[in-house]
Write a protein that binds this DNA or RNA. Sequence first.
DNA 1: CAAATCCGTGCGAGATTTTCGCAAAGAATC
DNA 2: GATTCTTTGCGAAAATCTCGCACGGATTTG
Lengths: 160, 160
Amino acid sequence: MFIRRMLQRRLGYWTLAELDKFDYRLLELLQENSRLTGNELSAKVGLSSAACLRRVQRLRETGVIERDVAIVSPKVFGKKMMVIVLLTMERDRPDRYMLMREEFGRMPEVVQCHHVTGAHDFVLRIQVSDMEEYSAFVDRVFHEPYIKRYESLAVLGSLK
Amino acid sequence: MFIRRMLQRRLGYWTLAELDKFDYRLLELLQENSRLTGNELSAKVGLSSAACLRRVQRLRETGVIERDVAIVSPKVFGKKMMVIVLLTMERDRPDRYMLMREEFGRMPEVVQCHHVTGAHDFVLRIQVSDMEEYSAFVDRVFHEPYIKRYESLAVLGSLK
DNA sequence: CAAATCCGTGCGAGATTTTCGCAAAGAATC
DNA sequence: GATTCTTTGCGAAAATCTCGCACGGATTTG
C-alpha cells in the first residue's frame, strides 16, 4: 500500500500501477459476488469496512473493475441452446476482421467473440432459443462469400 | 403481473412461471449494470423504487438472477494471454466426461468449459499470464493417455 | 353480481449500507 | 529526523434498501 496511486493520469491516458494483496483479495471476492457489503468484505480481508469500500470505489473509478453485472439464468430468456462456432474466412481482405468484430458485437445472439490464431479465425459463442433460430442465424450470417467454412459445436453442458 | 408467483414450490423443486415486461426490462438493465439503484431503475422502468427493488429481490431469491459479479480487467491479474482449446478424448469411458468437468472446474486457469457435440468433446477457455504458464498447463493437464488430441487457438482479441 | 381473495403497487418509516471529513500513523523522500 | 505523501479507522451524514401497511385491480367464489 506504499506506492499505490494505482493509476496515474499521465499524458492523457491511464497507466496501471501496483495493487497490493488487499486489492487482489477484494477483487477475488467481488469477482465471485459483487454484492458483498463493506462489513462482509471487512471480515474477510481484515481492513475496516470504510477502507474496503474506499478501495473498491477506487478500483471501480480506475477501471480495474470494469463493471458489475447480474448473471441471469439463460433459461429465463428462453435461450436454452448454446452453440460454439469455429469460423474460417477467406484470406482476401485483412480489414474484414475488424468489420466482422463490429458486426458480431451488434448481434444479440453472439454472446462472445474471439479472434484467434491457427486454422480458424473466430470462435463465437451463440445463444439461441432453438434449432430453428440457430438455423436462421446461420443462413443470415454465415452464408457470405467471404466466409470459407464454419463448424458448429452444440454445447451439451457448461461449467462456469 | 397477475398470475405471477414466478416460482412455485412444487414437489420439491422450483418451477418457472411467467415474468412480465417489467421483469424483463429489469433483467435487461441489471445484466448491463447491476449497480443501478432503486431510483435509477424506477426512472427507466416506470415503477416506484420500492416496487423495482422488490421485484429484483424476488428475481434474486428465485434464482432468475443467479448471481452478481464484478468484471475485473484481465490485465490486472497479469493474465494477459487467453487460449481456446478444442479437446478430443478417447472414447473408452463415458464417465470420464463428468470427472473431467469436475477437474476443470477446480483449475483456476480454466475460465470456461463447454462439453460439446461433434468432432471435439470439450471447448475450454484458458487464461494465463504467458506462454510459459500455458506450456506448463498443457504438460500437466493434456498429456494424459485418455486425451487423444488438443488444438490450441491463441486469442488475439475479444468482444464481450 | 357482489363478496372474498389474491397479488402487486406506492408511500413512508426504519434499518442497512455507503460516502466522506478528519485526525493519526506508516512509509518514502530529503 | 523532518517533511511529505498516502492510507487507516472512526463516526457522522447521505444514500439506499427493506418492510409493513392501506389501497386498488383482477380473479374466483358464493
